[in-house]
Structures are given as structure tokens and as C-alpha cells.
């Protein structure tokens, strides 16, 4: 079963409807037992990192998520769900976050040609140096399984003012240019993938990514690439 984590961080219906569109059933739940028993987890979020973490802590869901990651089953973070998997966020002071990946988040600086929030459709380019599954030189030609069939440079829909700043370049699966700078728009390590853009509102390629996620074993190795040793290998549960 696919479970969408409900921690009062925005509208989850859109994610559920997008999954239905690609033929996948999902439940929206805040229940620790349901989340722990999921075959794959979707962790969305809109709003501020501080209040999102506050809710998660109030609902005592942080350890449940941590345990889920340790099982090796596929985990997908979306938007704020891509930020609070980091160790900390600069939003609302320096908020301690879940710490699934090393690094934090930073805020965009507004410029005449870069209005903040970064809102709209922007290109997502596979990172040449990123990826744990394939060797650096092969990453661009052997993308992560969630990108299967999606042309490099396809546009996805973004709405955010903060962006993740992972410390390990190997955690960067794809990048996006905004205001003359590049930020990590897709992160991945082991059975965890996280997209800064709204997969559920990103048209055909967003749906393709969701479908790919639903087919993915969660394995950090793909297409024969060798894992660099982060995280457990995938369990293959679908």
C-alpha cells in the first residue's frame, strides 16, 4: 500500500488524485501504524519548514519516518518534504529537521529577473556528478529509476522560497537553474528520493515520475551501477 503522510502540511488530495491518474491507489494517513506498514511512503508538504516540523513532532511521527527509511522501502519527499529531510532549515530561524540527508536549506535572494518565491515551470537537469547508484561518469546516461523515460531538461512545476543544500554532491540527482544560480532540485540516497518541485502538478512528466516511483524497488543500485554504500539495499516490495 502507498501511504501519503498527513501531517497537516497542505493539501494532500492533489497527490492522491495524481496517483489515481496513473492507476495507483493510495491512502492519506497520520496514523503511525499505517505509515509504518506502508509499502512505499509519500511525504509531501507546503508551507513553512518550522511549522511542518512542529506538527511532525507534535504527532510524534519523526521516529516513525526514520524507522521507515531504515526498512529500505521507497520514500518520496515532495516540496517542503524535500527540505525537512535535511538536518536543518534556515526557515523560521535555524529549525532542526529530520536529518535523513546531511546538509540544510537556504533561501533564494530576490533579483529583478528572479522573483521569490521561485514559482512556475523550470527545467530539471540530471546532475552529472550526482547519484549513488551509478558511477559519476555514467550518472547522466544512466539516470535514477524515477527518471526513466523522462527527457533530461524537462520542465516541472515549482513553488518555493527555500531550497535544499546537501553537503554530499552524490546526493544530488538533478539540478535547476534560477536567477543565474543552480540548486539541487532532486535529491536521492538509497531508498529515499525527494523532489523540490510539485510532482503532482507537473503535468505529464510529473505523472511519469510518480508512476516510476510506484514501480521502483527502492534499490540504490540501478542498471548495474554499484552503490557507494549509503543506506540499505531495496527490499523490492511493491
Amino acid at each position: 500500500m502507498i501511504v501519503i503522510v498527513d501531517y497537516k502540511a497542505g493539501n494532500l488530495t492533489s497527490v492522491k488524485l495524481a496517483l489515481e491518474e496513473v492507476g495507483e491507489d493510495a491512502v492519506i494517513s497520520a496514523d503511525a501504524a499505517v505509515i509504518a506498514g506502508a509499502d512505499r511512503l509519500i511525504f509531501p508538504g507546503v508551507g513553512a519548514a518550522g511549522s511542518a516540523m512542529e506538527e511532525l513532532n507534535k504527532m510524534r511521527l519523526a521516529p516513525v519516518l526514520k524507522d521507515f527509511i531504515a526498512t529500505g522501502k521507497p520514500f518520496l519527499g515532495i516540496c517542503v518534504g524535500c527540505q525537512i529531510i535535511m538536518e536543518w532549515s534556515l526557515e523560521d530561524g535555524r529549525t532542526p529537521c529530520l536529518g535523513f540527508l546531511p546538509g540544510g536549506t537556504d533561501i533564494f535572494t530576490a533579483a529583478p529577473d528572479a522573483k521569490v518565491p521561485h514559482m512556475g515551470w523550470n527545467q530539471v537537469r540530471l546532475a552529472s556528478a550526482g547519484g549513488h547508484g551509478a558511477s559519476a561518469s555514467r550518472a547522466a546516461t544512466v539516470p535514477h529509476p524515477v527518471f526513466e523515460g523522462i527527457p533530461d531538461g524537462s520542465e516541472f512545476y515549482f513553488v518555493h522560497s527555500y531550497f535544499p543544500t546537501p553537503r554530499d554532491p552524490a546526493d544530488v540527482l538533478a539540478e535547476t537553474e534560477f536567477g543565474g544560480k543552480t540548486f539541487a532540485s532532486v535529491l536521492g540516497r538509497g531508498n529515499l528520493v525527494a523532489c523540490q518541485f510539485h510532482v503532482e502538478k507537473s503535468g505529464k512528466w510529473g505523472l511519469a515520475l510518480l508512476k516510476n516511483f510506484c514501480k521502483w524497488s527502492g534499490s540504490s543500485t540501478w542498471n548495474g551501477g554499484s552503490a557507494r554504500g549509503h543506506g540499505p539495499s531495496g527490499s523490492g516490495i511493491c
Partner: peptide, 8 residues
């Protein structure tokens, strides 16, 4: 609309 349209 939300059931049929997967863009903002």
C-alpha cells in the same frame, strides 16, 4: 477539475 487536470 482536480481529478482531470494535473497542472496548477
Amino acid at each position: 477539475v482536480a481529478r482531470k487536470v494535473f497542472i496548477p
